[in-house]
Structure formats: structure tokens, C-alpha cells
């Protein structure tokens, strides 16, 4: 069972990365060293090799930067609007809804007392992931969050924030002591310690995989539905493909929001668990 499953997955991945027929789907989903703006041309990104590492700027890095630029511009506008008057208007209204949502629906209930310290991190993660998710939905766009390297890095940053938050509140030894639940038999302690320690790492791992898989899957499904037209070579499938792709696309909009929310929510939850260990 497991072997057959793994062979299927392996074969699919091999086909995905190797085969010419489905390569174009992966081409759209995967990272690249150039910006494909066909029919306007292809922009080759600079390749940087430093300290024996490949630090080239890739498509996803460019889209992360676009997200950064958009966010900085939006928040400059928002800040100016707040300096003028305390009543939000225009884009500030939208940003305020999201900020207040992260503050009152995510950070405050999950972390509780002392949540203000983590608010900048949670807000940044939320807006960054949200913007990256949405950038993948515009034409010529690419989802930086469908890159496992990006999501793993974000999850690792979350991991550090969680651990540092817990250690700063409870002290180094107090924090690791608090990881083990109270009232368990002595002989279970070594096992529990290992289990809890593993739990620390599985949480961010789950965060990374969840975001990556969600953002990748929707795109692959859209591509596959559109690809039906070219594989079946008939016009009759066009309405079906387009309508299904449109449906998935609308779903993707929802998923883009939900995944940003979930990543922030779970990060916040884990921070709260590490911060207030008594619960």
C-alpha cells in the first residue's frame, strides 16, 4: 500500500519535472530564473553566486519584492490618512479592517495578555502572505508562497518567534520545563520530553507544508483544467474547462485569504501556548 502510493507520487513528480507534456504546468507553478512575459518577451534575472551558494534572484523573489513594495506603498498612504484624520477612508478602510481583524480576532484571543509585543510580527506575516497569495492570481503573477523554500523560511521565522517569545516570558529552563505536562509519572518524563520537543518542530513544519500545498494545488488544478482543452484537442471541452477553472479561481481567492489567516492564526496560537504555558 505504502510502496504503491509512494511510487505513484514519485512517478507523478518525475513526470511533472521531466516530462514534456505536463512540463508547462510546472513551469507556471515552479520558481524560475526569468520573468516570462510572453508575448512581450522574457526578462532574465541576474544570477548571483556568493560563498559557493546560488543566491540568484528568482521569479518568486521578485514577486516577494513586489509584495513588499505594494505593502510599503499602501501603508504609507494609510499612515498619511491617519495623520490627516482618525476617520479612515479609501484604502485605509480596507487595511484597517484587516489590521483590526488580526489584532482582535487572532492575536488578542489566542495570545491574551501581552499580545501587543507579537502584533507587528503577526501583522507583517499576515499581510505578506496575503499579498503574495494574491499576486499569484493576477496575470503574469507568480505565487511566492507556493515555493516550499519561502513557506519553510516563514515557518522557521515563526518557530523562532514562538520559542523566543516563550523563553523570554518563562525563562530558558522554565520554558522547557513547562513543555512537559503536569502530573505525569516520572518514568514517562524522557518520552514526553522527546515527544514535546518533536512537537515544537512539527508545528512550523505543518505550517510550511500547509501553505505551500494549498497555494500550489489550486494553481495546478487551474492549469490542469485549462490543459484539458489542449490535451483533448476539442472545442467542446472549453466551456467546461473555463467554468471549472473560473470556479477554482474564485476558490483560490478564498484560499488566498484563508491560508494567510490560518498561517497567522496558528502562529499566534503557538505563540500563545508558548507564552502562557499554564493553559
Amino acid at each position: 500500500m505504502w510502496t504503491s502510493d509512494s511510487t505513484i507520487v514519485t512517478d507523478t513528480l518525475k513526470a511533472a519535472s521531466g516530462s514534456q507534456d505536463t512540463g508547462w504546468i510546472m513551469h507556471h507553478v515552479l520558481d524560475a530564473r526569468e520573468l516570462d512575459l510572453t508575448p512581450f518577451g522574457i526578462i532574465h534575472l541576474p544570477q548571483i553566486h556568493l560563498f559557493g551558494m546560488d543566491l540568484s534572484i528568482t521569479k518568486h523573489v521578485v514577486f516577494m519584492w513586489i509584495a513588499v513594495i505594494l505593502l510599503v506603498l499602501a501603508f504609507i498612504v494609510a499612515r498619511k490618512s491617519y495623520q490627516k484624520s482618525l476617520v479612515p477612508r479609501g484604502i485605509t478602510n480596507l487595511l484597517e479592517i484587516l489590521i483590526v481583524f488580526v489584532r482582535d480576532e487572532i492575536a488578542r484571543p489566542t495570545i491574551g495578555h501581552g499580545f501587543e509585543k507579537f502584533l507587528p510580527y503577526l501583522l507583517t506575516v499576515f499581510f505578506f502572505i496575503l499579498t503574495c497569495n494574491f499576486l499569484g492570481l493576477i496575470p503574469y503573477g507568480s505565487t511566492a508562497t507556493s515555493n516550499i523554500s519561502v513557506t519553510a523560511t516563514l515557518a522557521t521565522i515563526s518557530f523562532f518567534v514562538i520559542q523566543i517569545g516563550g523563553i523570554m516570558k518563562n525563562g530558558f529552563f522554565g520554558y522547557f520545563k513547562g513543555l512537559i505536562p503536569h502530573g505525569i509519572p516520572m518514568w514517562l518524563l524522557p518520552i514526553m520530553f522527546v515527544v514535546e520537543l518533536l512537537g515544537l518542530f512539527t508545528k512550523p513544519f505543518a505550517l510550511a507544508i500547509r501553505l505551500f500545498a494549498n497555494m500550489t494545488a489550486g494553481h495546478i488544478v487551474i492549469m490542469a483544467l485549462l490543459g484539458l482543452i489542449f490535451i483533448l484537442r476539442t472545442y467542446f471541452v472549453v466551456p467546461v474547462s473555463i467554468s471549472f477553472a473560473l470556479f477554482i479561481f474564485l476558490l483560490e481567492i478564498l484560499v488566498a485569504l484563508i491560508q494567510a489567516y490560518i498561517f497567522t492564526m496558528l502562529s499566534s496560537l503557538f505563540i500563545g501556548m508558548a507564552y502562557h504555558q499554564e493553559h
Partner: peptide
């Protein structure tokens, strides 16, 4: 060409 689970250290660094 890369795979979907390909980890690129450059991207990691740039993400950080």
C-alpha cells in the same frame, strides 16, 4: 527545471 519540493538556499536567504 526543479521539482515542487526543491529547496533553494538562495530563495531561503532572500526570503529571510
Amino acid at each position: 527545471s526543479g521539482g515542487p519540493l526543491d529547496v533553494n538556499p538562495g530563495v531561503i536567504l532572500w526570503t529571510v
